[in-house]
Amino acid sequence: MHQFHIANVDPALPEAAALLDELCVRLAEITGSSGRSSFDAEDVRVPGALFVLARNADGKAVGCGAFRPMGEGVAEVKRMYAQVAGVGLAVLTHLEAAAKEYGYLRLRLETRLVNQRAVAFYEKHAYYRIPNFGKYVGKAEAVCFEKQLNHPENQS
């Protein structure tokens, strides 16, 4: 089992910015779009938002993730990225626990259908498909997911 140290940081931290840049390159390779326009660092600097960085045992930044408030007890997961096996689940688990502490009832997210690795990851971890929301409405390339944080099946 991998051990990671996950901490709340500002996305402008150089290590965080480097991971976000790497994520944009990977997304462009997979989907044809970097996703850069879908993330505004200011969205995770407001009350009810969070950006985290995961470090391995050597202190190297190896993953990140965030959520931003959407209103009505819902937050949107953003900028999930993992360089190494196990860090994606560690970051997602951390974000879910933090979202519960913040009082959120549900987490939502969007990924691209062509990003089958991400689609399978979220489905494996109890996220279910929902109608596309917000700017993703009407975009056939997008797939949106949601997870009920207080649902009995989702309790650890």
Rank of each mutant, 00 (worst) to 15 (best):
V143H: 02
S38G: 14
G59T: 06
Q148G: 02
Y81V: 01
S156V: 04
A57W: 05
N115T: 12
M80G: 08
E146I: 00
V84P: 01
L20E: 09
P69K: 02
R36C: 00
V77R: 08
M80A: 04
L113G: 15
M80K: 07
G63F: 01
V91I: 05
G48F: 02
A85H: 06
A49F: 02
Y104P: 11
E96W: 06
G103L: 01
C144V: 06
H151M: 06
H5A: 11
I130K: 05
N150S: 00
V114Q: 14
V119I: 05
D10F: 10
A28F: 12
A126T: 15
R36T: 10
G86R: 10
R79N: 12
A17G: 01
A61Q: 05
A49D: 08
Y81C: 06
V74S: 05
F145W: 00
P152W: 12
K78S: 13
Y136Q: 02
A16L: 04
R36D: 12
R26Y: 09
E22V: 06
G48L: 06
E29H: 06
K139W: 00
L92K: 11
L92I: 07
K135C: 14
Y128A: 07
L95W: 00
C64Y: 08
V143A: 03
G59Y: 00
A41Q: 12
G59H: 02
K100C: 03
G71C: 10
D10E: 11
P11D: 03
T93H: 12
A49T: 07
L92P: 03
L105N: 13
A18M: 09
A28D: 11
P69G: 10
I130Y: 06
F4M: 02
G65E: 03
I30F: 09
H94L: 09
E146R: 01
N56L: 07
G103P: 11
